[in-house]
Design a protein around this nucleic acid. Sequence first.
DNA 1: TTAAAATTTTAGATTTACCTAAAAATTTAT
DNA 2: ATAAATTTTTAGGTAAATCTAAAATTTTAA
Lengths: 219, 219
Amino acid sequence: MKYSVTKENYIKAIFHLQQENASVSTNALAQALHTKAASVTDMLKKLKTQKLLQYEKYKGVKLTVEGRKLAILIIRKHRLWELFLVQKLGFGWEEVHEIAEELEHISSKKLTDRLEEYLGFPRSDPHGDPIPDNQGRMPVNKQINLADLPVNTVSMVSNIGDQSAEIMELLNHKNIKIGTRLEVKKKFTYDNSLEIKVHNKAAFTISEHLARHLFVKYE
Amino acid sequence: MKYSVTKENYIKAIFHLQQENASVSTNALAQALHTKAASVTDMLKKLKTQKLLQYEKYKGVKLTVEGRKLAILIIRKHRLWELFLVQKLGFGWEEVHEIAEELEHISSKKLTDRLEEYLGFPRSDPHGDPIPDNQGRMPVNKQINLADLPVNTVSMVSNIGDQSAEIMELLNHKNIKIGTRLEVKKKFTYDNSLEIKVHNKAAFTISEHLARHLFVKYE
DNA sequence: TTAAAATTTTAGATTTACCTAAAAATTTAT
DNA sequence: ATAAATTTTTAGGTAAATCTAAAATTTTAA
């Protein structure tokens, strides 16, 4: 079955918003897709008839097994292309997201599988997100929010929970990227800011807001 | 300026049909794009207002400088991706055309230029077609139709003038591909079939129809 | 618990790319 | 040169994806 780019984007957005099997609201989708609630309602009806999701008026939406499969395939392609752009074409990891948004809709399954092979069957993309295999199995990254990391524990930045240019600017300035090893030295309860230390450089402070968007692995 | 995939396909088709600055007919376009003449007329009006082409009712269509630039960019991307698929991902040269039809619409200019660099600034694609550079300059391949090749002249297959699976099947069977060195041993005026000889294998006969779709370089 | 607020859906339009059928213009062939 | 054939355009309509405005439903909060 072949779906339009628009439909694929709906499915992907629902997948990303659908935490713990909870259903996704029309408004949340409208915001994520930069469109209006009325448009979302229209589209959900169409996607329902295509059995990609379960939808009841006023009750929100959940992906079916079929829908989830499609979402994972799109994410697989997105992440493989991101890694290709960084690893083979020398792009910076902060500039590949936008290009991968287009490449993820290229349909050839053979291309996806060959690309994966060419990249050596990677397990995660340049942002640290896991890459689903060609059976749709997604490796689970045991990671924790930096704000929840105990003090004095060495950890490695494994994920950035936001793709905006703004966070990238800040992280570049602070010299933090995927793979950066750091530990939390102190937590300030006043504003929940954190004092962290990278490698053996001088410690510095980051906001709670930033910490909440950084994920780390440890032990 | 960003154009829809459909519009890009119209521009590309006009470019390919527009020989020697002659204008292209509505019907020819309809056939090339697998659509109807009425739809073509509609679209030509839109593309005219976007200044991509010159169009007068009943007089056919020609690309403007702007339109030609766009066409060449699309062809550049198409051919770079084809080469990438063959050279880096190990695809057969007969299976890449269809995939490149999708990849040629990826918009990032930086991606195109990086891909070109990654491939070592190639001058032609796996079918032997020249790849335009990032200034839109297209190397001219001096090639001749195999049917017009003088007898007993060693030449090299440089281009296949048809992308169909059918011609590929035949060529695979005959063991002919881009780069194959061959010479014409005899021309039969009865049906214009040709006896050709590849390397030092036994000579065999090909139809005029096939010969007309094979292009070679010699001297 | 019911009124106000927020969310969601419906109704009715718009734009893009396409279609068929019929009219208009051009080309070809007698 | 004019009638027939062909090509091209116009007119009017459809489906996909969007919109605004208004109605329906659900949630929240006094």
